[in-house]
Nucleic acid binder design. Structure first.
Length: 485
RNA sequence: GGCCCUGUCGUCUAACGGUUAGGACACCGGUCUUUCAAGCCGGCAGCAGGGGUUCGACUCCCCUCAGGGCCGCCA
């Protein structure tokens, strides 16, 4: 295999809050590219029409920049292989896919969702080891398929996976991986709405963007053979694949927001220093060659980085150790630097300007400000006896209240990307109705949970200023208090 | 259930056939200090189990067990 210039990429999907896992993968890609004087590419994986959104994309940009992981090519700055937003590349995918269909490496499938659902259910009931599409539409002649397509019949395009034999793929850290072809599903490459799936878009883009190393999370290993088959179908040279271990919760399951703060916004808002977060992430599965040095700069990381030193056991994300590391970085700052950090964070003019209108009407002396507005400046709030009492309305139990807050949090607040009063108000009112709660009761529970107080500035404005992360965190804590104390 | 990945202190990890198995977090002591931290010093604690290969296995091979991931017209 000939040597190619090193080009790596990170391809986050803008479907929610910026994830710590994205930063983790980005960090290692960044390090490899910079180590070899290559290019680090940012690509936006927004082929999911339902969920992708611009607010989320912006947050991805901001978080990566916050961590100091700038990219050399990307949707915002362009580059020689653009566009870098997949939703802007649809014609490219369709054109390439036709080539695959012509070669018989992919085929149209006219099966309905209903049939597919029934098929899956049947296979599951039968405990069939061969799960997936049964290949019915593969038997349709190319001529007939083409006719049905041009007649406008709804269809998807599937990958024609060989019936038998096996597909070998190589992972830099794990060596040769073998997969039985009969167990690989005929992956859908183009959805019936004409959108590509991740698998197609990803392979086409990695090739066209001349990506030399695909460094991604371990959860992708099972689709590796499909990707390899795609490269071979196109007749393209495969990149080097390297699957990073998955970050874990304390119970070893894949890291999740129920069990850990996974949004980078959380760390930013809580005042973790980006260099500490980045340093800690580098410690997940990696260590300096001396095996001991744990505190190092991005530059030192890049300089000493080798993919081969990555260990494969899924690392448990330990907030305690991150916090310890952050403390070390914090203490290393000069007073002036520390002041500057405060000034660009929780004590920024921008934040204070948001808080002041909410406090002004409610204080009579300047010295009252801190006491009144303290819940805008702390992490978690405490709940005194009266606050606890007011949190639970007369008609509801503590458990009931905890359940309502949890439902509100997970079903309404978590998915909300436009975090402002205008969006929050209808959301909370709607939630109250669905939960069968009087709005006043629910709002008081939320108010106290969020602030520790029952007399506060207007709820929605307060929530907007506090921001999503702080609200989420405090509500979690309130739920916990209601259930356990 | 099927396929695949992984397995060193509670947690993050070093070791690339020969070490009293090292470091870090957490925890427990001590020290410093008007207090609390921080700092410094010390302690506790690990090779999942069983077979091989080898003069010699944490390191290589096999089996078992355990944990995890995937099995979507999500990524």
């Amino acid at each position: 295999m000939r040597e190619r210039p090193v080009r790596t990429r990170v391809a986050p999907s803008p479907t929610g809050d910026p994830h710590v896992g994205t930063a983790y993968v980005a960090l290692f890609n960044y390090a490899l590219a910079h180590k070899h004087g290559g290019r680090f590419v940012l690509r936006i994986e927004d082929t999911d029409r339902e969920r992708s959104n611009a607010a989320s994309e912006r947050m991805i940009f901001e978080s990566l920049q916050w961590l100091g992981l700038g990219w050399d090519e990307g949707p915002d700055i362009g580059g020689p292989f653009g566009p870098y937003r997949q939703s802007e590349r649809f014609p490219i995918y369709r054109e390439h896919l036709e080539r695959l269909v012509e070669r018989g490496a992919a085929y149209p499938c006219f099966c309905t969702r209903e049939r597919l659902d029934a098929l899956r259910e049947e296979q599951r009931a039968r405990k069939d080891p061969v799960m997936g599409y049964d290949g019915r539409c593969r038997k349709i002649s190319p001529a007939e398929a083409a006719a049905r397509r041009s007649a406008g019949e709804s269809h998807v395009i599937r990958l024609a996976v060989p019936e038998d034999g096996e597909t070998a793929a190589h992972d830099l850290l794990r060596g040769d991986l073998r997969f039985e072809n009969r167990l690989i599903d005929d992956q859908i490459l183009l959805k019936s709405d004409g959108f590509p799936t991740y698998h197609l878009a990803n392979v086409v883009d990695d090739h066209l963007m001349e990506i030399s190393h695909v460094i991604r999370a371990e959860e992708w290993i099972s689709s590796l053979p499909k990707h390899v088959l795609l490269y071979r179908g196109f007749g393209w040279q495969e990149p080097v694949f390297c699957h990073l271990p998955l970050l874990r919760n304390a119970d070893k399951s894949k890291i999740s927001k129920r069990k850990n703060p996974v949004s980078l916004e959380y760390y930013r808002r809580a005042g973790y220093l980006p260099e500490a977060v980045r340093n800690y992430l580098a410690l997940m599965g990696w260590i300096m060659p001396d095996g001991e040095t744990e505190e190092f700069t991005l530059e030192q990381f890049v300089e000493n980085f080798t993919l081969e030193r990555i260990s494969l056991g899924g690392p448990v994300f330990d907030l305690d150790k991150l916090t310890w590391l952050n403390g070390r970085y914090l203490r290393g700052l000069s007073p002036a630097d520390l002041l500057a950090r405060l000034r660009s964070g929780v004590l920024s003019d921008d934040y204070l300007t948001q808080v002041i209108p909410l406090a002004r009407e409610r204080i009579d002396r300047l010295e009252d400000f801190m006491a009144y507005a303290q819940f805008f400046f702390v992490g978690e709030v405490s709940y005194d006896g009266e606050a606890r009492a007011r949190m639970v309305p007369k008609k509801h139990s503590r458990d009931d209240t905890a359940g309502a807050l949890e439902a509100l949090l997970e079903e309404n607040l978590d998915p909300l990307m436009e975090w402002d009063a205008a969006h929050l108000e209808p959301l909370l009112r709607g939630a109250a109705e669905r939960l069968g709660w009087k709005t006043g009761d629910l709002f008081m529970a939320v108010r106290v949970g969020l602030t520790g107080r029952f007399a506060t500035p207007p709820l929605f404005e307060t929530m907007e200023v506090l921001g999503k992360e702080l609200c989420r965190r405090r509500l979690r804590r309130a739920i916990e208090v209601l259930r356990t104390e």
